[in-house]
């Protein structure tokens, strides 16, 4: 009985993940080799979908655009996330204040992403708050057009939505840093930036890695933010897949999906190669 208990307890999780994750991923791979015409998908084994995906300049350009978004968003969320966590962990005094401020940062994560994206419209639009204020102050003569429905808006929305995913793991690792290490550094005469660079950042590496994995995978696979915030101006791999789905070109979408999955897994493997996070979990 005792030996069976863990298996019984883990079984529901295993069954659900097998049915709704493993099996669907197998289906994706299988269908990516299927053939299709304008009305249906035809079971067979062809490589044309992959040839189309990898042979098309559009794919490469789209990947480049998505990777550019990922790099920019990763850099911004990392810097912002690090200093927000730093403030929470080392500047704020008192457990309760720390917890309350941390909650303030996490609560938006539990509200609707789509509403949070839409909420930038009255702010950034042609007649939005920002343009109105800048016009009144005489800083600009004409409303800035690039604020909404642009790459700028996409990056802004990403940072708005995903910085939380960086703050949480980094804050978590910072809270576990033995304070005596920092005191020792102070006693040894280390200055603020030396402590940050040689004590805090090295000890935060696992948190930084986990946050990076979140941001990279979220941005690489996104289609909804690009669609809503760029107004059809920018491309992303996720959007490309979602367009193929709406055209019912499922095998093509699957081939694209398999390639995206491979790219994302390679990026995660690269991050894990640099930082071992196993012991953090």
């Amino acid at each position: 009985m005792k030996l069976r208990a863990p298996y019984l307890q883990a079984a529901p999780l295993a069954v659900i993940l097998a049915a709704f994750l493993l099996l669907p991923m197998i289906v994706l791979v299988v269908v990516s080799f299927f053939d299709y015409d304008s009305v249906q998908i035809i079971p067979s084994f062809v490589l044309t979908n992959y040839r189309d995906v990898l042979g098309s300049m559009v794919t490469w350009r789209t990947y480049l655009s998505t990777l550019r978004f990922t790099a920019i968003v990763w850099a911004i969320t990392l810097v912002v996330g690090f200093w927000v966590s730093f403030y929470l962990a080392f500047v704020v005094q008192g457990r309760v204040t720390q917890l309350v401020l941390f909650l303030v940062c996490t609560i938006p994560f539990l509200t609707s992403n789509i509403i949070r994206m839409i909420s930038w419209v009255p702010f950034l639009g042609r007649e939005g708050l920002l343009n109105t204020v800048l016009l009144r102050l005489g800083l600009i003569r004409q409303p800035l057009e690039f604020l909404l429905f642009s790459d700028f808006a996409v990056v802004l929305a990403y940072v708005h939505l995903y910085t939380l995913f960086v703050v949480t793991p980094i804050f978590n690792t910072m809270m576990r840093i033995d304070r005596r290490l920092i005191e020792a550094a102070i006693d040894g005469g280390a200055r603020f930036w030396q402590i940050v660079a040689h004590v805090i950042i090295p000890l935060c590496k696992p948190g930084i890695a986990i946050g990076s994995i979140f941001v990279v995978t979220l941005v690489m696979g996104d289609f909804i933010t690009v669609r809503l915030m760029s107004g059809g101006q920018s491309a992303s791999v996720g959007l490309m897949i979602s367009n193929q789905i709406s055209l019912l070109q499922y095998p093509a979408a699957c081939a694209n999906a398999v390639v995206l999955l491979a790219v994302v897994l390679l990026m995660i493997a690269a991050i894990l190669r640099i930082v071992a996070i196993r012991k953090e979990l």
């Binding site: 709704f20 994750l21 669907p24 991923m25 289906v27 994706l28 696979g221 979602s242 999906a257």
Partner: peptide
């Protein structure tokens, strides 16, 4: 393996999960 699968569930792009289950 189950732990890896659980973490994978978190990081596999949502649109792939959606597409996979839809096709399944």
């Amino acid at each position: 393996a189950l732990f890896t699968l659980t973490v994978a569930s978190l990081i596999i792009p949502s649109i792939l999960v959606s597409l996979g289950i839809g096709l399944l």
